[in-house]
């Protein structure tokens, strides 16, 4: 996967800022996309293009359990999220809906950098800066779910959880 980074080097970006509670009561995902990250960067939904990558600081996605947060990012076109660390429910939710999340504690990605991601090996290459960074490995259960395209796809196919 290859894409352009939208970097917000901020810690603790909570789910209220990813998608405010007042917009979440809908099953219309285009509405979620339109208001995605609005309180952090009002221009985000106009700037972002399908296949772009979101880059953030520590504890990304803290706060409520709303699955609309990763859904909003995915619907807005974000192809993967890279953060120094994630809040746990957001992390699970993202994988469950098939939005790849990469925990990369150490990196120097800047806004606008062109990145290439190797999921198999958890390596991110910064094509703009000629650098590469290592992502924390996913437990095998999560990897299987992500590879299937999410938990819904996994269960539709297999009918039960992967054995450990």
């Amino acid at each position: 996967m290859q894409g352009k980074a939208h970097a917000y080097p901020v810690d603790n970006i909570d789910t209220d800022r990813i998608i405010a509670g007042k917009y979440t009561k809908t099953l219309d995902f285009s509405q979620l996309a339109a208001h995605c990250l609005e309180d952090l960067d009002p221009t985000f939904s106009q700037k972002v293009q399908a296949g772009d990558l979101l880059v953030a600081g520590e504890n990304f996605g803290c706060g409520s359990s709303r699955e609309q947060a990763p859904v909003a990012l995915k619907a807005a076109g974000v192809a993967a999220v890279i953060a120094r660390s994630f809040a746990r429910i957001f992390y699970r939710n993202a994988i469950n809906i098939g939005l790849p999340v990469l925990e990369v504690p150490d990196h120097t990605i800047q806004d606008g950098d062109q990145l290439s991601i190797d999921f198999e090996n958890g390596i991110i290459t910064n094509l703009t800066r000629q650098e590469s960074y290592a992502a924390t490995r996913l437990p095998s259960v999560m990897l299987k779910i992500l590879q299937a395209g999410g938990l819904t796809a996994y269960l539709t196919e297999h009918g039960d959880y992967p054995s450990e």
Partner: peptide, 19 residues
């Protein structure tokens, strides 16, 4: 706390995975 898809899977299977 889990998200909606985890919950759907629990409603269906009576199970979940945990670290």
């Amino acid at each position: 706390g889990v998200g909606s898809t985890d919950l759907a899977a629990a409603m269906l299977t009576g199970k979940t995975w945990l670290k």
